[in-house]
């Protein structure tokens, strides 16, 4: 297999200024696993994108969306109320469907959360997941990252493009696999790939430790 095309996809860029797409092996693995279920429930923690919804709908998914980074910024608690991060999560995350979520798309959200916040998010999500549920995460390995999460658009079931402003940048937390083992008890890395664009893709499986 041609390594370059395996990572960057065979699709030509739609326009010169468009951000490059990358082939995501963890996304393909995740979506392939969802095909085995008649009505899987998916929680998307990224920006709401109609094309992603259409793609998940084609897999008969029940989709819940909570653009968590944006909600944390623009959906503050009632005036005068001081809210802990776990309480914010309780307010901002959608209720789980009966049976729980089969997958969570966190995209690059973890890069914008502190360790204690990732721990709190994982603790909040864990009881809402069904056994073996999977969490997709993109973790930047570069020293600097865009100042806000990108919008990840699924072009198909294995090609993804990250849209949005890449500048200005901010320092990256540079989380590594041992960090996630500490921050996400009860989850194990089932797949991980380092891509040329500086993203380390992870697929975490719930209840596998």
């Amino acid at each position: 297999m041609d390594w370059s095309t395996s990572l960057w996809g065979a699709r030509p860029r739609p326009a010169e200024s468009a951000p490059p797409a990358h082939r995501s092996l963890v996304l393909k693995a995740l979506l392939d696993s969802l095909r085995r279920f008649p009505r899987p429930a998916v929680l998307d923690l990224g920006a709401p994108l109609g094309s992603n919804l259409d793609l998940l709908r084609a897999l008969s998914c029940r989709v819940s969306i909570a653009d968590l980074h944006r909600l944390l910024a623009f959906e503050p608690p009632e005036r005068g109320v001081r809210e802990s991060f776990p309480a914010q999560l309780e307010r901002l995350l959608p209720a789980p469907p009966p049976g729980g979520f089969a997958a969570v798309l966190s995209w690059d959200l973890f890069n914008y959360l502190r360790r204690d916040q990732i721990q709190a998010l994982t603790a909040r999500l864990a009881p809402t997941l069904e056994a073996g549920a999977q969490v997709l995460a993109f973790v930047w390995t570069r020293p600097t990252i865009p100042c806000a999460p990108l919008r990840y658009r699924m072009l198909d079931d294995e090609n993804v493009v990250g849209e949005g402003a890449r500048e200005p940048e901010r320092p990256a937390p540079l989380y590594k696999q041992p960090d996630f083992a500490r921050m996400m008890p009860g989850f194990a890395v089932s797949r991980s790939y380092l891509l040329r664009n500086g993203i380390q893709e992870y697929l975490f499986a719930n209840g596998m430790t």
Partner: peptide
């Protein structure tokens, strides 16, 4: 694209 949404579909 660009809408703000929280909930299930």
């Amino acid at each position: 694209d660009g809408c703000s949404f929280k909930g299930s579909v």
